[in-house]
Nucleic acid binder design. Sequence first.
DNA 1: CAGACCATGTAAAACGTTACATGATTCG
DNA 2: CGAATCATGTAACGTTTTACATGGTCTG
Lengths: 192, 192
Amino acid sequence: MALRHAVLAALLDGEYSGYQLAKIFDTGVANFWPAVPQQLYAELSKLDSEGLVTGRTVVQHDRPNKRVYTVNAEGLAELARFAATEAKQFAIRDDLMVKVYAVDHTEHAAVIEHLTQRAAMAEEKIAAYDRILTGLRGDLDEKTFLRKGNRVGPYLTCLRGRRFEQENLEWCRFAAALLRDRTADDAGSPTT
Amino acid sequence: MALRHAVLAALLDGEYSGYQLAKIFDTGVANFWPAVPQQLYAELSKLDSEGLVTGRTVVQHDRPNKRVYTVNAEGLAELARFAATEAKQFAIRDDLMVKVYAVDHTEHAAVIEHLTQRAAMAEEKIAAYDRILTGLRGDLDEKTFLRKGNRVGPYLTCLRGRRFEQENLEWCRFAAALLRDRTADDAGSPTT
DNA sequence: CAGACCATGTAAAACGTTACATGATTCG
DNA sequence: CGAATCATGTAACGTTTTACATGGTCTG
């Protein structure tokens, strides 16, 4: 039951509607706790009915009305309790890794293609992270921001995300190149 | 529906029972697709009834009988099909990241403690990965193994796991140190 | 003899994903 | 005028997690 906490954490930045949150959670950059819009709408109204967030309907004329939420005192207390609980083991689920694991028994071509795509996505994500990091620290340099900035939490998780994608990028390229080499070798020596 | 593929991939290494697979999936090193024993028992009998794996009951006298499974031709074909499908976006779900994200609004102490624990776990996992990597490449050096070894899939995913944990370790230490510093600063200057 | 390990499962609850539904406005 | 964006939801389905159940052997 931690989507609720991810939502509460996201709402610390300001007042958001389900739709807006969905976009944040979708950039893929909404790190470490993916969620689709339907989950967010459901979770927000649940949090509202439980009194952890406060909803407010914003009437708009040029587009549909929306309901925006903020974390209230109850919600903050819940987050504090959550922060103190034991951290569960994280879970990564990645199709591509399963494919690579089995690659000795399948065609290399498709897997190489997937690795290349993943590398391209990683590059885009790194660029996105960099934009966000720049935005977060404003006109301060990183060192100063980390010492004195007032919202280091998002900065730290963003840094982690960036490093993860950097790692991912390098590994995907390495793995793709290796498989290409081995495929070429196989073609050269038709033994086996 | 990719647990089935993770199971098929794991069975490429040999003949395993649900119990043995559970241990493999549990070492935390069974990368990129966590699963608890109950899932594996269920998945194995499903795969068996669908004809993707072949089960065989091993009678034991000193301990309970067990049912071991191997991937058959059908299973291999399924894996090949799977390898060709588009790789879905991977999902990471990590409690700790949510805690760090919200850290500006909560007590630092608990989060620092969790980061320290996570760092310790990462160190253990790195050591475990190193043992597995050494085991996989046998008496070959890494370069030779990657060129000519006959099971590079597991080696590559293991390398990725190792790098991930290395990254994790460094980031956890960095984040913990930073939060400690900021806590000390807060104590020094009680302004705010 | 208590606790750990071997070995496998059922059942219910929680959580996540996909499909479907609706309806107005703006942009090309 | 078709597609995209804004905005929110219900319902069905699939997957994961947790709890419960059983019973033998081996170790301290």
